[in-house]
């Protein structure tokens, strides 16, 4: 257990040291998005002001997802693919699965920090157009918890299966589509007229994250029911953690 916390302390030390960079990396994109679509366009009349209500939960989900995935996938891919820095931690007197768990905790933490940054930012920018009614804080926390873990598990799955040279490609082919086809910038029910797409994207955990936050923050927007949201996130967590763990173990031993 001491070893586990020491590993965590190492990652937190490094994260805190790079905090300004981390904040800019995490918050810049959501900030611009919120600024343009939640402030500029509604104020110029090109987008309905109620769009802010659809946007906020989606932006929250997208930022959390991005932070958790980036925070685990990029370092892992580099560690296993090139610099082998993680070897010293693999030699720590602890089971390899605990090293994976530590990575999941760390990814989840980064995802939460992102949520904690982006939510107030978005709220300040769009507050005149927003009407938020938090239905249940308990549900909100359950969702934050599940979304954080799902993002970290996604990151571990990607990080252990992609070579460091392919990171830009991973963004283009996996992460960006996950966000754009993840019901972040539009509610899932808005896709009724493109029903093939509406069905396909149900495999994307982002959909459940965004819809889940809609269901607790802006329930007036039509959303997927909380039962299916939690189910979808749980399935994603179980599958991605399993695949990520297997991938990690496969890379950790030769």
């Amino acid at each position: 257990m001491k070893t586990f916390f020491a590993l965590l302390e190492r990652d937190i030390t490094v994260l805190v040291r790079d905090l300004p960079e981390f904040v800019v990396r995490i918050a810049m994109q959501p900030f611009l998005f919120v600024f343009v679509f939640g402030y500029v366009l509604p104020n110029t009349g090109q987008v309905q002001s109620s769009y802010a209500n659809q946007l906020l939960p989606g932006i929250l989900a997208a930022s959390m997802m991005m932070a958790g995935v980036q925070g685990t996938a990029i370092p892992l891919s580099q560690d296993f693919g090139a610099i082998k820095e993680i070897e010293d931690r693999l030699m720590a007197p602890i089971r390899i699965s605990m090293v994976v768990l530590e990575k999941i905790v760390m990814g989840t933490l980064q995802s939460w920090i992102a949520g904690g940054l982006v939510f107030p930012l978005a709220w300040i920018i769009m507050r005149n157009n927003l009407s938020i009614h938090v239905q249940s804080f308990l549900t909100l926390f359950v969702l934050l918890f599940l979304v954080g873990i799902a993002s970290a598990a996604t990151g571990i799955t990607l990080g252990t299966s992609i070579s460091p040279f392919k990171i830009p490609l991973m963004f283009a082919t996996i992460i960006i589509p996950m966000i754009f086809l993840g019901a972040a910038y539009y509610p899932w029910h808005a896709l009724t007229n493109v029903s093939w797409l509406q069905k396909i994207i149900l495999i994307n955990p982002m959909v459940y994250a965004a819809e889940g936050f809609r269901s607790v923050l802006t329930p007036q927007v039509q959303h997927i029911s909380q039962f299916y949201v939690v189910l979808g996130l749980l399935v994603a967590v179980v599958i991605l953690s399993g695949v990520g763990l297997r991938g990690f173990i496969k890379r950790a031993y030769s």
Partner: peptide
Amino acid sequence: RSLTARENLVFHAKYFG
């Protein structure tokens, strides 16, 4: 590489309690 020389030693020792 994210740590100083000394931190490399100290963290390693922490992993070992």
